[in-house]
Design a binder for these strands. Structure first.
Lengths: 155, 155
DNA sequence: AAATTAGTTCTCAAAATTAAGAACTAAAGA
DNA sequence: TCTTTAGTTCTTAATTTTGAGAACTAATTT
């Protein structure tokens, strides 16, 4: 079991609550929190269980969910049966793209709603269209912003 | 009870499911869907209940939640005790700002995690910092993008 | 071969969420 | 004054979610 300061434990809970609000179960959020807060580059199944005081079953399910969602990854070492879990840090730009796609999917539904409503309420149509078009514009700008940020950062 | 085509009903469900995935209860999502899909500029409590076949209690709670979250609004007419509900269409740019603030709040937690971890894992620190800084950059750009979009649109 | 390890899967119970229905309130109308 | 209307609140039941614990599996070690 890892020794964690009260501040570390508190921060794990805060990160956990943030993830709960994003729709994850509490245990899942705490595991993400732990992986971000721990100084160790990776943690084993056992360390996670003992440190967070959670069951093997909840941990097994949570880790597999997080692996599948590409929020974490693991390394192995030959001659060692354990898996060494860590937060996946290289995929945040893909995450941004995914988030934008979800927003775009909703924009498409709003467009369908506009189409079905016809011209009964032109003011509403226009306002909904504004929203749709800004979201599409924002989405289209994200890759450029990413490039720009990468470039600016190099200096 | 409003007459709705099968396509309209289907679209209400899709908008409902989107909102369920965003963390709303099913009834809440369907009400949002109905308000976007209906040709009427606003709907009464009774019309919502009858059209969606949901209880008064669920409807009362859902409408109050949506009012409080500023997803809907209502109008009144003097000499008429009913409230006339509609989707709130003017606040989507505030919504974008709120979403960005939530992302920034998480960035702040990540920064705290970086600080607590110290220099044990510099590669991780750098990657987390990249994520934080891109999110901050993206967030800072949103108001400009909104302005730019508004300007470009005027032509 | 027996025991340990690293995890998975199954079963179940507790807790939380969701929404119905009934009882209620406060204003308006008859 | 009695009734209707527009909605709220309370109680309760069904459903879903969450996670514990035990039993299990498949390697690995002894």
């Amino acid at each position: 079991m890892l020794k964690l300061s009260p501040e570390q434990r508190q921060l794990i809970e805060k990160i956990g609550i943030y993830h709960e609000q994003q729709g994850f179960p509490p245990v899942v959020g705490r595991i993400i929190g732990l992986l971000f807060v721990s100084e160790k580059p990776y943690l084993t199944f056992e360390e996670i269980i003992e440190t967070l005081n959670i069951s093997k079953s909840a941990t097994s399910n949570a880790l597999n969910l997080l692996l599948q969602m590409r929020h974490i990854e693991y390394t192995t070492f030959s001659g060692d049966r354990k898996r060494y879990f860590s937060a996946l840090l290289d995929n945040w730009n893909q995450e941004v793209v995914n988030k934008m796609n979800s927003i775009l999917a909703f924009s498409k539904l709003l467009r369908q709603a506009n189409d079905l409503r016809g011209d009964a309420n032109p003011d509403m149509n226009q306002k909904v269209l504004d929203r749709i078009e800004f979201m599409e514009f924002l989405s289209s700008q994200v890759p450029m912003l990413l490039e720009q940020w990468l470039k600016d950062r190099q200096k």
